[in-house]
Nucleic acid binder design. Structure first.
Lengths: 321, 321
DNA sequence: GTGAAAGCGCTAACAC
DNA sequence: GTGTTAGCGCTTTCAC
């Protein structure tokens, strides 16, 4: 790997001039040509590590998501990537596995690697943003919020829960259970609250066991649905507060021999690749990609020096038909 | 961000001792304690950028995949990540979008960021590995091969194509079409060759139009299947050479009003989340995660200094039942 | 507009 | 075992 000194020597200029050339400062036309040619001849690429050490910042942003195998988050990642790319930033994706320990490690890496900023879908509400925030690196929370005063982009989760539950009522169901995510994740808790609000307003029964907590994956939804179906008086419909739990729940319904077209299923999120899904399944579409582009835009503004107080942007979910 | 000098000053030792402490060289117990306490008090984190500049290498590997929204590649990514993590390496994921231009950019970034190595699922067989390889950074190709002499991990794609096609024959189908990926991607071409081999051996007709090329995504498979169904004498079965094209093909079958349980569909790969799939769909399971762990292991060996000639590991696919 | 030189934070000889 | 010191490759004053 050629250095700036070798280019300078070959071009007959000083290293500073080479640096200026590559950073867009004014350099006389003839030296420009000399540098360009020398750089080409040596296949010179500026060493980003050295630049980063010197400038104390980089053009890389980190994106921390809880589950790279969840299509919701990959769509979100695409949004972030597209927006960041336009602005000349690279995105490195980190998979926290919904594990606060891993999350913390990645946050530290982001700091010690001098990332320009971090977009984070927190694995828990204890995500320690103190360290990274105090470094001055901007942070944007996405999909889920945190107690730390940072920018956030989220969905109107309660409205999503309300819309989904209402749709089940409209389809004639009354005994509606809820498979919610782990306790402590605001996003799905709000969706659950939407369910409870509708159930209460409609004076629908919410017997013990109608609220199940599960991990966010298909296996969690599957097990929860099995527990629901084993109830003495099982529900005739269920709301899952994310997409993958919906996948698992639907699978359990099918396995139990119930007719998935009659059993009411509502999902906050989209059942991935499931176009064979019974038409009866209610899906509340989440603007995953848009969450990503919005978060990236906010982060880029902060990186650009924006210092207004933290904002929270709320995006709307939309009932798919 | 505290530096090694501040820690040294507070601990009453030299910067070198602090460095040694954090790099596991022998330091006397008392100084160890002093350094540990000073570091804790200052919340010191070693600056990786400086370390990287000095050592000319990092503990980060880059993983370049063509489509982050394809579950096959995310499973592969999980494999890479798990293995790398065990060895203390971080993984940064880059989405090339099957675009040679993007791929090249990421390859350059990997070089100028002094990544410890690169695992690459090439977007095309022109992927220019010359630059990065000449830098001495090890490269492992995964899923797809390249003309460059680098380590590779792949699947026995022809066998996979043969198994899938044979299964369709065994189910009684004779008019079997093939939806293959873009020309130039060895992996899916080999699967197509498996199809042709079986068709030829069984003296089955392969009229014009029975071979369709499509992009790797669901929309490509969907369009290709529509073209097949519009043929004067349409096929009664089809093989798709990857998972997402299978999703699109199945969708087209359903939309066309054909009974997906009677129309033969075979997929090299797994239909993601599609447990509602008709039992009749043939799937040849690809060891996605295992591809990832194997590639990571090979890369780590190279990073560790292994200099044997490039190896290619071939993993077996397995007919799901 | 251009060059000389200092220094970003760390590691690795090298001396002791 | 420990300290001193010279860079890694770049950017950025500061003179000219």
């Amino acid at each position: 790997m050629a250095t700036i000194y070798e280019v300078a020597a070959l071009a007959g200029v000083s290293p500073a001039t080479v640096s200026r050339f590559f950073n867009g400062t004014t350099v006389s036309p003839e030296k420009q040509r000399a540098v360009r040619e020398a750089a080409a001849k040596l296949a010179f690429t500026p060493n980003k590590t050295a630049r980063r050490l010197r400038k104390q910042s980089s053009e890389v942003v980190a994106l921390l998501i809880p589950d790279i195998e969840n299509p919701f988050f990959t769509a979100l990642a695409r949004g972030v990537e597209d927006r960041a790319q336009e602005a000349g930033f690279s995105v490195v994706l980190c998979n926290t596995d919904d594990d606060p320990g891993k999350e913390l490690r990645y946050l530290q890496i982001a700091a010690s690697e001098q990332m320009a900023g971090v977009i984070l879908a927190p694995a828990s509400d204890e995500a320690d943003l103190g360290a990274i925030a105090s470094l001055g690196s901007p942070v944007v929370a996405v999909d889920r919020t945190t107690p730390y005063p940072v920018d956030a982009v989220k969905v109107d989760n309660r409205a999503a829960g309300i819309a989904a539950t209402t749709a089940l009522f409209d389809a004639g169901h009354r005994r509606i259970a809820c498979i919610a995510g782990p306790v402590g994740i605001e996003a799905t808790e709000d969706r659950f609250l939407g369910w409870r609000q509708v159930m209460t307003a409609r004076r629908a029964a919410m017997p013990d066991g109608f609220l199940q907590h599960a991990n966010f994956r298909a296996d969690g939804g599957h097990a929860a649905m099995q527990r629901l179906l084993a109830l003495p008086e099982p529900p005739d419909a269920v709301l899952t507060t994310n997409n993958l739990m919906g996948v698992g729940a639907l699978q359990a319904v099918v396995e139990a021999g119930a007719d998935p077209a009659r059993f009411g299923l509502a999902v906050v999120g989209e059942l991935p690749f499931l176009f064979l899904t019974p038409r009866s399944v209610v899906q509340v579409r989440l603007p995953a990609r848009h969450l990503g582009t919005t978060a990236a835009s906010m982060l880029l503004e902060r990186i650009g020096g924006d210092t207004q107080p933290p904002r929270t942007v709320v995006l709307r979910a939309e009932l798919a038909r």
